[in-house]
Every structure is written in structure tokens, then in C-alpha cells.
Computed example of a mutant assay.
Amino acid sequence: IFHTVHTHKPHFVALHCQEVGGKNYEESMTHVDSFVKELLSSDAMKEYNRARVYLDENYKSQEHFTALGSCYFVHESLKNIHQFDFKAKKFKKVAGKEIYSDTLESTSMLEKEKFPQDYFPECKWSRKGFIRTRWALADCAFDLVNIHLFHDASNLVAWENSPSVYSGTRQKALGYVLDSGSNWTMITDQRYDKVPYFLFGDFNFRLDSKQVIESLCSTAIMQTVRAADTNEVDKVIFRESDNDRKVVLQIEKKLFNYINQDVFRENNGTLLLEFDKELSVFKDRLCELEISFPPSYPYSEDCSQGKQYMNTRCPAWCDRILMSTSARDLVLKPETDEKLLTYDNIGPNVCMGDHKPVFLSFRLTTGAGKPNAHKHKCCVVQ
């Protein structure tokens, strides 16, 4: 992340994290606080003299806990930036560095919501939800939404239908963010002015499992193995018809072991983008720059295997940066130099956990067409 900031030198940095504290958050949450303090005091960020950090760490509150972290950094050269107070319904000038953790419900500078439990009945308890903040650079206002959607619980279930049942669950949850939400938090809430918005986080978007498997194993012979006690499908094995019936792909609930991982890395895996279809339902409302980086998940967590995928899931572009059509118009103005736009991953050769972070760097023009128009470099990181 420091390298990305140093390379692009943004005036405003938005960093969205999910699963703050990791899988063992009860033991690891203290490390999050140490990480944030080190981040704020680091030499790499010394020119960012204002910051707002929001960490949902209150894991004891199952009703509200989302494990989301939204961090915002403002460069010393940026003189005119404000953040919206949702309770007071007005913008307030950003000064100093502030950290909010534990119970975020008490701050009016954001809106946070957890998805209804019945959205994902397979999971007894979920941390999935979203956090929204609103910002203004000069006279340009926009929303930043940190989002975490539902995962695929089983590879075997995911490939049963096209699209999968999990795809439908994510579609419903994303629609909830865009349209309904609760009475007090939604992007299209009529109580507030409509502004351009950016959504970035772990959408958990997956390739269409049925179609991608049919493509990868088009000439293979399928074998189904059932559990002796329940007779339910336990694993599916695809073998070559010749070549000593070599195994091409083996699928289990949490295993996706394909014979050649290079297919997900060659040309950044872009040949598989035709199976990345979950965003198409929202194509009239959400935009994305062209993807030119490999699938962002699931990477090995072995520090020596920075480019290797785990054999747990079919690699997919889970981590994304999306925007409303009005936000796209801010980013992609007719005079925009494409060299100033970057949509890429971070640490392609370095272990960054099972998700490889992605970022969008762009120049935001405020007060366009006015004598005092300014251009600010922004970097949003997922």
C-alpha cells in the first residue's frame, strides 16, 4: 500500500478493509489497533495530516458486527475537504486525525448496516454488511461505500445451476444497498441529496461455476463420488478420456483443484472474464473500468507463494471498485488522460493474504468549468 501511495501520490486516499481482525478476531483484534497506529505515524504517510479511521471491532454485538474498516487520509496540500454529518445533515470541515472503533453506531459521520440474516440462511452468523461515508472536495460531493457480500459456501452447490444460488443471494444484497436498505441507510435515500457514489470492497463475485467448469473440462469424463452414509455428492472428478485417465479437476465442498493454474494467470486470466457475469444485472446503474489484473482470490497465505492460488475455490475477481454512472462521469471526462487512470492490484508478487487488494487511482476535477477549478488525485483501495 505504501508503494502504491508513493507511486501515485494521491491527495485523498480511501482504504476499505473487510474482516478486520481476521478469522480469529477475538484474539487478533488488538493487532488491528497496532496496525492503524503504525499506519498513521509511518514516514510513508507523514504528508497526510488529516485522517478518519472507522473500525467495526465490536464482535460481542452479533446484531451489528460487520468487521468492516474504512480509512481515509488527506494530504496536507488539499485545503478544502469536508465530511458529511448524517445526523446534522451538513458537511463539516475535516481537521486532525480521528479513530473510531468498537461501536460505530454512536458516530453520525457514517451509516452502517448489516444485511438481514435471512439473506444467507446457510450461514448461522454473518459479518456481511456495508458502511457509507460522504465527502466533498471543493464543490464536488460523493459517497464512498465499503461493502462485503456473501461468499460461496460450497463449490458443489455453486456448480449445480447457472447462475448459482449464491449469485442470486449476492444480487439481492447488492440491490438492498442500492435500493432499499433500512429506513435510515441507503444510497438513494430521499432525505439526502443524490450524489455520485463509489462502491468498493469484497463483492465475492464468482465466475459462473457451471459454465467455467464445462469450458475447462469440455473433453473430460465426469465421475461423481457419493458419501456412504448420506448418499449425497461428496466430490466430482473430471478425468481425461485417454492419457491414463489423468485427473483434470477435482471438486469438493471446499476444494477446487484444477490441473493447470496458469489458465488463471496467463494474460491476467482475462480469457475467463466472459464467465464473470454477476455485475451484468446492474449494468445500467453500476460501472467499472476494464479489468486487466488476475483474479483477486483465493491466493495462498504462504509467505513464499505470493503468486500462487489456493486449491480451495475457483479463482475469481471478488474484490472490485464500482461506481455510479454519475461517478464515472467524474472520473472519465472527455479530457481525461487515460495515463492518469489506473485500475490494478497491489503486491502482485507478494503474499497479501487470500485476497489481493485492488486500487483505482484517478484525477477528480472539482468546480469544472469555473475559474477556480482544481484537479485532485484520488486513490481508492480495496
Rank of each mutant, 00 (worst) to 15 (best):
T66N: 07
T7E: 14
V177L: 04
D276V: 02
K97Y: 07
D229T: 15
P295N: 02
Y48H: 09
E38G: 15
V247Y: 02
T365R: 10
S101H: 12
S304D: 06
E274M: 09
K89I: 04
V36E: 05
Y258N: 07
Y297H: 15
V233H: 04
D143N: 08
R328H: 08
Y197G: 05
R52A: 10
R127F: 00
T169F: 00
E232D: 14
L364D: 11
S154D: 13
T4W: 11
C379M: 15
N80M: 07
K9C: 02
E288S: 14
Q308C: 11
V145R: 00
N260Y: 02
L286T: 13
S108M: 09
A153H: 15
V331E: 10
Y166S: 00
G367L: 00
C314N: 04
D276R: 07
N183C: 01
L174K: 03
N204E: 05
Y258C: 10
Q250S: 14
L332Q: 13
K235L: 12
D189R: 12
Q83P: 02
C17F: 13
E274Y: 11
A173L: 01
N58R: 01
H64L: 04
L199V: 06
F203G: 00
L178Q: 03
Q190C: 11
N372M: 08
N155Y: 00
E19M: 08
S324D: 00
E26C: 10
E338L: 10
E274S: 11
S154C: 11
M186I: 07
T336M: 13
S292N: 15
E27A: 13
S167K: 06
P315Q: 01
W184E: 15
M29R: 10
L156F: 04
F203M: 06
S61T: 10
K60C: 08
L271S: 14
L249E: 11
Y59T: 07
N267R: 08
D189S: 15
L360H: 05
F65I: 09
S218R: 12
K254I: 00
